[in-house]
Amino acid sequence: MSLTFESLMEDSEERGLPLWRVILENEIDNFGGSEESVRSAMKSRLKIMSESVKKAATQALPTVGNLISGSAKRAEEYREKGNTLSGELINKVMTAALSCSEVNAAMGRICACPTAGSCGIVPAVIITLGEERDIPEDKLVEALILLSGLGAVVVENATVAGAEGGCQAECGVAAAMAAAGAVYLAGGDDNTCLSAFTIALVNVMGLVCDPIAGLVQIPCAQRNASQAVNALISADLALGGMTIPVTPDEAVAAMYAVGKSLPRELRETALGGIAATESARHIEKSIFG
């Protein structure tokens, strides 16, 4: 049987198990190990994530061309002044996402989720909520198991590669995964997690992948910050009772179809979008000659 959101939910209902546990048991059935070993492997990823959300918030890291060096530190200093427009939590989440993007661009250690280019979104949401709400580590690990299982459905049926599906497939899917994880941490049920997933993906439908000079910096860092916020607000919309008359399987299929219909210029080739602007070309020339 193919892996879909529908099949996962059917499995969950038939066996009377929460979605995260169905995903955990599928993992053990397919790849071996035990609940303890899967939890422990996920915990080690959580640790890498907690390092990468902090590292660039206190020190600027050098990146090729230094296009985003210092962006996380500046965002952190701004938040600390306590006069942000969108509030503490949103600014914390954005700083955390920017830090991961900067660590990644500076050739530091990150955990891809689902890709390296989108590695800031899930950690920013899960770790920041964990800190803000004092959530035990075990529950954070369960959220990661859940959202990774949802990401696997996208990998199975569509793509998470910017070169294939645009930014919607990378940062968009990361936002959808993070939204589902956020709902889980807030105590929402599985259907609400899937609504949040779908809403986040709908919000980002069509976003192109257009990195300046082909570097994983601009607009990747900005998109990590904004998609982390997309995850949070999508989770709130779902927790507030918003449902959407589109199934998550349909939303993923739609995202994939949109991705395939994007011209090559808008799929990680640095030939279109903001990468093709005069300013971007100038930056490209100054770095690579």
Partner: peptide
């Protein structure tokens, strides 16, 4: 697909 192929690999960027 393993959940660790989605959340992972742990790697040096970018």
């Amino acid at each position: 697909i393993s959940i660790f192929d989605v959340t992972g690999p742990v790697m040096i960027g970018p």
